[in-house]
Design a protein around this nucleic acid. Structure first.
Length: 887
DNA sequence: GTACCGCATGGTT
DNA sequence: TAACCATGCGGTA
């Protein structure tokens, strides 16, 4: 074999007295005795004295100097001893996927015997080997000093090999991460130098390969007599191919020796070196190789690897993790053969965590966004076909084989790697992943696993399953990519929400049955809601996720009709509905007036619309003094659940805590004991779950509570409703309704068809209608008042009467009335006793006092928009009905 | 009734 | 247009 050598950056190191790099020798070197040994990570070469170099050159270096060192292993095939403990012997062996090592000769034979599938990169074409080949080449160049030029083709000739070109292209595109560069390279094939000069922008650590990157405990085996640089070449030749190398010198003159294999065999090695001087002064080689024609993909792993520090590790065995930027470290095949969506995007940090301090080399293989079905209960993870075939073991039977996977925490899982025949093709799946994914969900706490990255750990040959969590950003690159890839669900799977956060921020508050509306409307945009719920995917990051859906064409097209799965999920969402219903009790406007609350009808369902997102609040209770006057309010701290007495006009945050108690400094801390009073002892609900109770009638008739929503609604109509006695027990249909309730919620199907509401109905829908009406009236009156003000007129009596804020204080509360009131409702305590069915004097008094409102509400009408005519103007509508009812 | 299995279907690339 | 792949869905335990 003849090798032409061009240059080495090591030349720059000339000058000054040096000693032999061999720690066991350390003989002083002179210009005349200095010889280049193995290549170092820096791109330089170990400088050896003549004697050591000779040993090295003969492939006996490790046998000579490392005999007592650790790291000797046996070739799994031929049993030859291989030193895997230093950088010198790196090119002499290969790491097997299944573990163990193989000498180069055996590895090559094994590889040649595998026709199509999947050879682990490290097995197929160990970059180490490649690297070593190069080193060897370079070394020999140095030695041979450019002889036999005639036997070396010009680099341009190399490009005649389509295979090589392809591989190189892959490699280049990977290495440089810039197709343009590779294109240039290919186009300008005449110069591999240019290759070397292409600095990997954004690809800092370029996968170095070679022993450099590798585990220090591998080296050339002394039992592979041919496995020194020369020997290795012999091995390569032995595998039926003659390999020639040609090197070109970088025009920069830097340490770029580019070794381009020129051969016509099926076993061809291309090794390109690019200087990494700009990057930590580490020169890592790039290699493109081809082997079996069927293996277009060159198995050279290496994305991120732990590179032993050549200086240290080669002697001390210490390894040093070297991080690369995420993009460039993936297996070149990922870029060349896999769709971008499958490119692993594992971060350096993650790799670092995975590899830890060990000598393991972690090679990200591919990544897959989790689809709904992947993350669902089925427990099947569909694998991209190409990824499965390239990176996972070949399987010939559909049953496949069990595949051991290790997650980032080190826990081992065994999945069934199998395939289904599908359209004359195969569909690869990993079965049994649900526990693992769920485990990751748990570990992730409140985040969401959105993608899974498969990597391989060498030399163990184990597979690693890493999970990427969703980000809080709703429009992450992931999602975009997922959406772009047509994987809407995966993209959307990033958008899991905490239910309460969602509720708290939801601009629309659906009424009964509105969950369905919610589903209908959201489903079309984002099916993953259901999936999330189903899979327990809830993101509790506190960020508002509501509008971050990335619609998927596919999803939307699928969701409409025939999605049995989705129907199931919708059922699941009903579970959320119940929770929602309960949560409704506490939802209120963020403002302390009603003007910001209106009602809209969407697809036949009523939504309470907040100008701003509603907030959650605990109910408050109004207490009275000894005279029977309501003069205080009790509110429960959201932290300690203690009740605090506040002034009536206290304006409360939706998350009121003791620290907000500026009215009673002594009880402005949760540590302060709860005030002992009649109310706290007997009337206020117990700490646990009290706020959820929709309606309570306390022993003391001074306290009557209703839930905040009802109060809110009733506040709007101020007793215009006609109460009726009902049991305090909720109905089975609707926990907030009483037996006998004939409201639409209790008696109507979700379709909305059925009997109309009765005027006495106090269901949410009715109440909202009333509230809506009140809001409309208020606004109307307000406008009218403004108009009149502009005209210098004073508001009419009627106007005053219709404004709760004005009316309420004027309406003396019943001595027996103490009202629960949604904490955020503001200063004006609602004085009513509404729909809990308790008829009192107050109500009767109000009933006797005609209100412009009570004759205007038709519970069965659709709440109109503000612009629409007032119900008052609609003859024969609710005016008559309501009046009749009252009469 | 439910979960699982495995093929089929059809949208997307 | 073919391949891919998400998921539908019938059969079975």
């Amino acid at each position: 074999m003849q090798i032409t050598t061009m240059s080495s950056s090591s030349a720059a190191a000339a000058g000054g007295l040096k000693i032999c790099f061999n720690a066991h020798c350390k003989e002083a070197l002179t210009e005349q005795t200095r010889r280049k040994g193995w290549r170092l990570r820096s791109g330089e070469f170990a400088e050896l004295c003549d004697r050591c170099h000779s040993t090295f050159d003969q492939g006996n270096f490790c046998e000579t100097y490392h005999l007592d060192a650790a790291g000797w292993r046996k070739c799994e095939s031929c049993g030859k001893r291989i030193h895997c403990g230093c950088i010198v012997s790196v090119p002499a062996y290969m790491l097997l996927d299944v573990g163990g090592v193989e000498c180069l000769g055996c590895a090559r034979k094994a590889y040649s015997a595998v026709p199509t599938q999947v050879c682990s990169p490290s097995v197929v074409l160990s970059p180490l080997v490649l690297e070593k080949s190069k080193e060897c080449t370079i070394k020999n160049w140095n030695q041979g000093s450019g002889s036999f030029p005639g036997q070396w083709r010009h680099p341009s000739n190399i490009w005649n090999s389509s295979t090589i070109q392809s591989d190189l292209h892959q490699r280049l595109s990977y290495e440089f991460d810039r197709p343009s560069n590779s294109e240039k390279l290919l186009a300008g094939a005449s110069s591999s130098i240019s290759l070397q000069e292409k600095k990997p922008e954004g690809l800092p650590g370029r996968i170095g390969l070679s022993g450099l990157n590798h585990v220090p405990r591998n080296r050339y085996g002394n039992n592979c007599p041919t496995s020194t640089r020369k020997g290795m070449m012999s091995d390569a030749s032995a595998s039926s191919s003659k390999v020639n190398f040609e090197t070109c010198q970088s025009s920069s003159g830097k340490s770029s020796s580019s070794i381009i294999p020129v051969g016509e065999s099926t076993s061809l090695l291309i090794s390109l070196t690019t200087p990494l001087s700009s990057l930590n002064d580490i020169s890592d080689p790039i290699r493109a190789t081809t082997n079996h024609p069927q293996h277009k993909a060159i198995p050279s792993p290496f994305s991120k690897q732990n590179y032993p520090n050549p200086i240290n590790s080669s002697h001390s065995g210490e390894s040093q993790a070297q991080t690369c930027n995420g993009r460039g470290r993936l297996d070149p095949r990922a870029h060349s053969h896999l769709l971008p969506r499958y490119w692993p995007r594992i971060t350096d940090q993650e790799l670092q965590q995975i590899s830890g301090d060990s000598n393991s080399v972690v090679t990200p293989l591919f990544e897959k966004m989790l689809s709904a079905s992947d993350a669902g209960r089925i427990g099947r993870l569909v694998l991209p076909k190409k990824c499965a075939e390239v990176y996972f073991p070949m399987i010939s039977q559909p049953e496949g084989l069990p595949l051991k996977m290790q997650d980032a925490s080190g826990k081992e899982w065994v999945f069934q790697f199998r395939f289904w025949p599908n359209n004359n093709s195969r569909m690869y799946v990993l079965e049994g992943v649900t526990p693992c994914i769920q485990s990751m969900q748990l570990q992730a706490g409140d985040t969401v696993v959105s993608a899974v990255t498969f990597s391989r750990i060498d030399p163990e040959g184990k597979f690693l399953m890493g999970f990427r969590k969703s980000s809080t950003s709703s429009c992450t690159e992931q999602e975009n990519q997922g959406a772009k890839a047509g994987n809407g669900s995966s993209a959307s799977s990033d958008v899991k929400n905490n239910a309460m956060d969602f509720i708290a921020n939801l601009p629309l508050r659906p009424h009964k049955g509105s969950i369905e509306s919610k589903n209908q409307t959201e489903r079309t945009d984002k099916e993953s809601w259901s999936m999330n719920d189903k899979a327990g995917f809830i993101q509790k990051d506190g960020h508002l996720p509501v509008v971050s859906y990335i619609p998927s064409k596919r999803k939307s097209s699928t969701l409409g009709s025939k999605s049995k799965r989705l129907r199931i999920e919708n059922e699941d969402s009903i579970e959320l509905t119940l929770t929602w219903e309960e949560a409704q009790v506490l939802i209120r406007s963020a403002h302390d007036d009603f003007s910001s609350v209106s009602s809209v009808s969407v697809e036949g369902h009523q939504f309470e619309e907040f100008e701003e997102g509603p907030v959650l609040g605990l109910p408050t209770y109004f207490g009275k003094n000894q005279d029977g006057d309501i003069n205080n309010r009790w509110v429960q701290c959201e932290n300690c659940s203690k009740w605090r007495r506040l002034p009536l006009d206290a304006l409360l945050h939706h998350r009121w805590t003791c620290s907000d108690n500026k009215w009673d400094p002594e009880r402005s801390s949760c540590s302060a004991p709860q005030e002992i009073s009649m109310e706290t002892r007997h009337l206020l609900p117990m700490k646990c779950g009290s706020s959820k109770k929709s309606k309570l009638k306390f022993e003391d008739e001074n306290f009557e509570v209703s839930d905040g929503l009802d109060t809110l609604a009733n506040l709007a109509i101020l007793g215009e409703n006609k109460s009726h006695s009902v049991s305090s027990q909720p109905t089975t249909k609707h926990p907030r309704h009483r037996p006998g309730c004939t409201c639409i919620v209790c008696i109507q199907p979700p379709s909305g068809k059925g009997p109309k509401h009765k005027q006495t109905c106090t269901c949410n829908v009715c109440l909202t209608v009333k509230r809506r009406f009140q809001t409309l009236m208020l606004r109307r009156e307000k406008r009218q008042s403004e108009k009149e003000s502009e005209n210098g007129e004073t508001p009419t009596k009627q106007q005053n009467c219709t404004q709760p804020a004005q009316v309420l204080p004027q309406t003396p509360p019943s001595p027996s009335a103490c009202i629960i009131h949604n904490a955020g409702l503001g200063n004006s305590p609602p004085i009513l006793n509404p729909n809990n069915g308790l008829v009192d004097d107050e109500f009767e008094r109000k009933r006797a006092t005609p209100s412009p409102i009570k004759t205007q509400i038709d519970l069965n009408i659709q709440p109109e928009r503000e612009e629409e005519p007032s119900p008052v103007d609609v003859p024969g509508s609710m005016i008559v009905a309501f009046q009749n009812d009252l009469d």
